[in-house]
C-alpha cells in the first residue's frame, strides 16, 4: 500500500507563530474558566453542583427506593412466605425460605427473606404481586452503597427495620 498522493494529516500542518508559543491559547482557555467562575458566583442558584451529603436530591414522589418488609401489630413480619414476589420478580433477586409457624392461625412465615440489591431492578412488581401488602418499595432510600458485594444481599432483619427516611 502506498501513501503517495494522500493528503497530509493535520499534524504535519505548519504552525503559525502565535500557535507555536501556546501562551495565547492558554490565556484563551483560562478566560473560559474564569467566565464560568464569575457567572456561578453571581448566580449561585443556577449552579448544578449539589453539596452532597449535606444537601440531598429531591426525587419525584413516584420514586420507589429500597424495599422494606411490613410488620404485624406484634412486630412479626407480615409476610407469609407465599413467594409470589420471588415468582414474579424479573430479576430473580428474592430468596425466601418458608417455615412452619407455631401459631396455626399464621401457619407459614419466612425463616429467611433475602434480597440481592445489586440484582434488583427496582421495578416494584414484588409489591404488586404481594397478597398481604408485606413488601413495599416506598422508602425513597436511594443511597445504596457498600464496600463488598455480599453486603448488598440484605436479610429479613434489615428489611424489617428499613424504615422510610421521612421524606414521605
Amino acid at each position: 500500500m502506498s501513501f503517495e498522493g494522500l493528503p497530509k494529516g493535520s499534524g504535519n500542518k505548519e504552525r503559525t507563530f502565535r500557535e507555536s508559543i501556546y501562551l495565547w491559547e492558554v490565556l484563551r482557555g483560562l478566560g473560559v474558566t474564569i467566565g464560568h467562575l464569575v457567572r456561578n458566583i453571581l448566580h449561585t442558584d443556577d449552579m448544578p453542583t449539589r453539596q452532597y451529603p449535606e444537601e440531598k436530591h429531591v426525587y419525584s414522589d413516584r420514586f420507589r427506593g429500597r424495599h422494606r418488609l411490613m410488620k404485624r401489630e406484634d412486630g412479626a413480619p407480615r409476610c407469609v412466605a407465599c413467594q409470589m414476589c420471588s415468582t414474579y420478580c424479573p430479576a430473580d433477586c428474592i430468596e425466601i425460605v418458608a417455615a412452619e409457624h407455631p401459631d396455626p392461625a399464621i401457619e407459614k412465615y419466612p425463616a429467611s427473606f433475602d434480597i440481592d440489591l445489586l440484582r434488583c431492578v427496582y421495578c416494584g412488581l414484588c409489591e404488586e404481586a404481594c397478597p398481604c401488602d408485606a413488601i413495599r418499595l416506598d422508602t425513597g432510600i436511594f443511597e445504596i452503597a457498600a464496600d463488598q458485594r455480599e453486603k448488598f444481599v440484605v436479610d429479613k432483619e434489615f428489611l424489617l427495620n428499613n424504615e422510610t427516611d421521612g421524606t414521605r
Binding site: 407469609v80 412466605a81 407465599c82 409470589m84 401457619e107 407459614k108 397478597p131 398481604c132
Partner: peptide, 9 residues
C-alpha cells in the same frame, strides 16, 4: 381462600 400459605396452590 388462604392460597398464599397453601401448598396446593
Amino acid at each position: 381462600v388462604d392460597c398464599p400459605i397453601c401448598d396446593q396452590a
